[in-house]
Amino acid sequence: MSETTTEISVEALRRGDRAEFARMVEAYSGPIHRLALKMLAHPQDAEDVLQNTFLKALQHIRGFEGRSSLSTWLYRIAANEALMLIRRQRPETPLADLGPDADDNEDFAPANLSDWCCLPEQELLTSESRARLDQAIRRLPEKLRIVFLLRDIEGLSIAETGQTLDLSETAVKTRLLRARLRLRDDLGAYYGERLGERKK
């Protein structure tokens, strides 16, 4: 989400300027919806998170102090909404699974060593492959998934991702690495099969 191109006036938002709020919704609803959809997978859940994010933003905009950027603030609301929804839907999820650094000592050595990089681009990005990319994200534990989505899909910096999730930069980097390695392993299993089929 680039604020340099949209130039939303936080001052106008704080004054309750509806036109400016509508501009903010227009600028940021796409990325927030994408984040929610990839975090939750179900379109209705994603829509609920989208609506709740902007309803909360509307409710709290006067208290927004600008300590973080507007986009980071919105992502923070959306991430909390999505994680709360997951908690409500799966109350049996151990708190540690959503909490900080429970698996810091987890062994994350790469398992898949097939060299699928040589597959042609059109084969790497078929509609089936794209569905597999999304599926691999959904298989990540929530706390790795949200870090990966903010950093690698939404393009936030390590520092912004940390601000959004109240995590240290070290924790963000650790989770990002784990998420990326798990996705690499997951995709390796899929593309490795494609590679095997080509060699037959």
Partner: peptide, 24 residues
């Protein structure tokens, strides 16, 4: 080398597809 190359490719594929899903 395989891990580095495929990790790089994994991130590249996600970056490539990210921009396609930005409209509500």
């Amino acid at each position: 080398r395989v891990v580095v190359d495929t990790l790089r490719k994994t991130i590249y594929l996600y970056h490539e597809t990210a921009a396609e899903n930005a409209s509500v």
